[in-house]
Design a protein around this nucleic acid. Sequence first.
DNA 1: TTGAAAGCGCTAACAT
DNA 2: ATGTTAGCGCTTTCAA
Lengths: 353, 353
Amino acid sequence: MARRRQAVTIKHVAADAGVSLQTVSRVINNEPNVRDAMKTRVQESIDRLGYVPSIAAQRMSGSRSYLILAINDRDRTIADWRARQGSDWVDQMLLGGMLTCAEHGYRMMVELVDTHSDHVERELGAALAALQPDGVVLTPPHSENPLIVDLLAAHDIPFARIGSIKPGPGIAMTMDDEGASEQATEHLIKLGHRTIGFIAGPAGYSLSGWRIDGWKKAMAAHGLPTTDLCERGDFGFQSGLSAARKLLALPQRPTAIIGSSDQMTLATLEVARELDLSVPGDLSLVSFDNTPIVRFSDPALTAFDQPIAQTISQAVSLLIEARNVPPPAAPVVVSGTLVERGSTARPRVDVNA
Amino acid sequence: MARRRQAVTIKHVAADAGVSLQTVSRVINNEPNVRDAMKTRVQESIDRLGYVPSIAAQRMSGSRSYLILAINDRDRTIADWRARQGSDWVDQMLLGGMLTCAEHGYRMMVELVDTHSDHVERELGAALAALQPDGVVLTPPHSENPLIVDLLAAHDIPFARIGSIKPGPGIAMTMDDEGASEQATEHLIKLGHRTIGFIAGPAGYSLSGWRIDGWKKAMAAHGLPTTDLCERGDFGFQSGLSAARKLLALPQRPTAIIGSSDQMTLATLEVARELDLSVPGDLSLVSFDNTPIVRFSDPALTAFDQPIAQTISQAVSLLIEARNVPPPAAPVVVSGTLVERGSTARPRVDVNA
DNA sequence: TTGAAAGCGCTAACAT
DNA sequence: ATGTTAGCGCTTTCAA
């Protein structure tokens, strides 16, 4: 294949407009010290010739790469993709990120990195060296991986930590998991539930703990007990099954359960069916994530929507602006909303009365 | 922010190994004319220093960008993302593509392009100039857009046309829509259905026609009529609703309907419910796409799975290999499979007996 | 089989 | 406000 060169370069534009390369460069980058008349003339040449700067060349000359890297956990991402069970995290992340990138003339690229590997640094370091992104978006569980965070900080690359509120380098961002969980719990309490079980996510994710906190907080505020009412899962269906079985076998059976993922909550629905419990008659269910599938279960699940796209979009904006504006020091909170559907109702009988 | 330079460059490696830049370059690119001993020595330096070539620099010097661009229709992609109705096309495309890219040291980037715009060429041209990808994957409806195809051909960039079998530049690829549709129809005929309705996709997609062809072919092979049994939709739920209503209002009511998308088939299920028709008792349903949501309807839908990930993966491989091997001239066919679920059964009563 | 020189398209730093 | 010069890190000539 023929060596592919740029069709129209900055040189052509400079020649066409009768100015120096530098002036064209200044116009492209919207830099000061160019008279309006000049600017207009150059811009006309650019438009006429259909000139678009080569990103490779821009990066080469020590400038920007116009690239934001979104880093996901390899195993989890591939597993979710293979399972094809409706997780739309990647979709939400990509679209939310790329559209905002596009608004600023940037692009987003998704990269998979293995958290559990001992050569994370090599893997990530290679991506950084090869791509030289202008910013990186870290998603859980990478967001709190010290190897990754430190590497990014050492390279002086702006980055956002989604699902982390720890102080430290990078922009901490959360979807207000504690508040969300609290709100979900309050919703159930208002309906009259008093024994509310909780299926938490794995310990490797900070947000698992925050959600537990929110639930406990709401329960405590109403003087309700939480002992024995919390089980751990790994976000997957199977783990939801066993967690739900334990909770529903409790002497004081919960009249409502909050699941920390759609898969686990769907599993709980399944267990309820096994036990001949009607939902929401005997058992109310609130889910987390609000992936598309929860609208198709019977009943459809009330779920707390995770504003993934908005969060990534916001992260991208902050990262790009980081060139000029210092990024926020305090954690950035992007809140979701509770979407009420058929799986929640007043408890049929107040078992705890 | 400080000007960010490459930490370890080819120069460092050359110095460390005591050879010229060129020799290092040859090792990196696995080129001939390097003695094994030399190769080993250089490789050791590379490993020791943790050297990774800068893609920007590689591209600059007229070599590869190690980038494959996957181009989607902007409106449709954004609409699907917003609707959040379970379409996992982007997910399947991205993962299938990026993993295969990674195997070859390439990356995949998703780009949205507006088909209906009159400045497609400008839009795509800009992306090509800025990114200089080594290959492009075109998805429907772009795959047969002459403006796009010609532009790519003119730029001499290898590209694949997913969902196109037209001769012409680029690698034509299909998921065997005609065969799939035929197989779905055969499945219903074998169950005993004789009046089988079909909800087609929009005319802008070639595959809409191929699926109609497959259905007609199978029907004809068994001497069954197709007149009035085909309605058009636009792949969306609403269009499925009206198409289904028309089909189910026919004097000779179909005992089975094939929908060209999950949304349209789900809509048909909804209409069946309105009309008090039991599925699959009174009406069997076969869908196309097999997105995650079809497993959660009641009953779960029998669906023809679209091997999107495999197809994109294959496209990427062919594109990357195109540097050395001439790409296939004939259309590349990647076949999917029919996934049987609860929405298909023998017709309860043979209405047409 | 190896190396030296030139240049890709752009921007930073320094003139003017 | 504009132009000139010197690279960025790599590959492509071309030479030895």
